[in-house]
Simulated scan of single mutants.
Amino acid sequence: MSERAEHPTPSSAALIDGKAFAARVREEVKTMAQDFAASHGRQPGLAVVLVGSDAASQVYVRTKVRQAGEAGIASFPHLLDADTTQAQLLALIESLNADDRVDGILVQLPLPAGLDESAVIEAIDPGKDVDGFHPINVGRLSAGQPSLVPCTPLGCLLLLQDRLGDLSGLKAVVVGRSNIVGKPMGQLLLNANCTVTTVHSRSRNLAEECRQADILVVAVGRPGIIGADYIKPGATVLDVGINRVVDDAGNARLVGDVDFAAASQVAGALTPVPGGIGPMTVACLLRNTLTAARLRSQAG
């Protein structure tokens, strides 16, 4: 079985190149990380915790560790067996909270069955919560206060601001209400002075709601759910979905939640899958680690 990742060339929509923009973000982080190291005598540090042997998670963790090193960030990977207990995992987090070399702690989700994700997230020092999932950081984001922000929504916001500039007054629709993407994305857009609507599986007139959007962000995990009739002509569309589909011949490919070929006939700008939002997530993790290091140095 072969696996490939393809998307057709859009006929009208401009392609938003998340891969290229993420490379720029990583270069900026590298420069600032070098300045931090020169000032503080150490590199910013990121601890990555993986429990179990999920293949996709292992690849993702390796990518994070490699890109951290390239950006001048020290990485501290902790690869734990699938039978790791809740007490053992919490003890590790407690030790990382107390480790002055570590500025950011990322626990790769999902965790194996039997481990309490909420308790693990809440055990992380909010100042080291580079995923932005701790309730304190969630509350700060909702209150419009400085906080560590979830990486994928942050990446989306940076792409939007790069393309559109000031987002004030634009109508934004977020499809999906997860704690990881949908909810924080809506809050970030609201903080950027957009008029925000969140739609989900229980929403009525989904296509009609989406067609009102100047900015459409889709994060539901359903291949091709958003077609041309969901998109306002000229809208900027960010496709956060990454879905692996297999055709009748057994060939696998990655597709988003947006029907790329159809949407590209209507949208003004569109992210591809892959090469759109995905690279921005890791770049923003590194950016958050640097932010956490700076904040900790100021507090100390």
Rank of each mutant, 00 (worst) to 15 (best):
H78N: 09
G114V: 10
L159G: 04
V173F: 08
D248W: 03
L190Q: 04
A56Y: 02
T197D: 09
V107E: 06
D214A: 05
Q67G: 00
L188W: 06
A55T: 03
V130F: 00
G234D: 12
Q108H: 08
E209D: 05
G104W: 04
L188T: 00
Q86S: 00
A192V: 02
A113W: 00
L167R: 06
Q145N: 08
A55N: 02
D248L: 12
L170D: 01
A213W: 11
D54C: 07
A123I: 03
D239S: 12
V51T: 02
Y60G: 08
A47C: 10
I231W: 06
E27D: 15
P223K: 08
P274A: 09
R66D: 12
L141Y: 07
E6I: 14
T195V: 12
R287P: 00
L216W: 09
R163D: 03
Y60E: 08
A14E: 15
L189T: 10
Q145H: 12
I105M: 06
I231F: 08
L92K: 05
T291A: 13
D129M: 06
G241L: 04
G169H: 10
P44G: 09
G132N: 07
E117R: 13
S142W: 02
H40S: 01
H200R: 09
D166A: 13
E208W: 03
D81P: 13
L190I: 03
L111S: 09
A113E: 15
I226H: 03
Q298T: 14
G224F: 09
S57D: 08
P8H: 05
P223S: 13
L254G: 07
R296A: 15
A33H: 06
T85D: 01
N179Q: 12
G114M: 05
R101T: 10
A235N: 08
L158P: 00
M32S: 15
V240D: 02
I136L: 15
L286Y: 08
I93R: 02
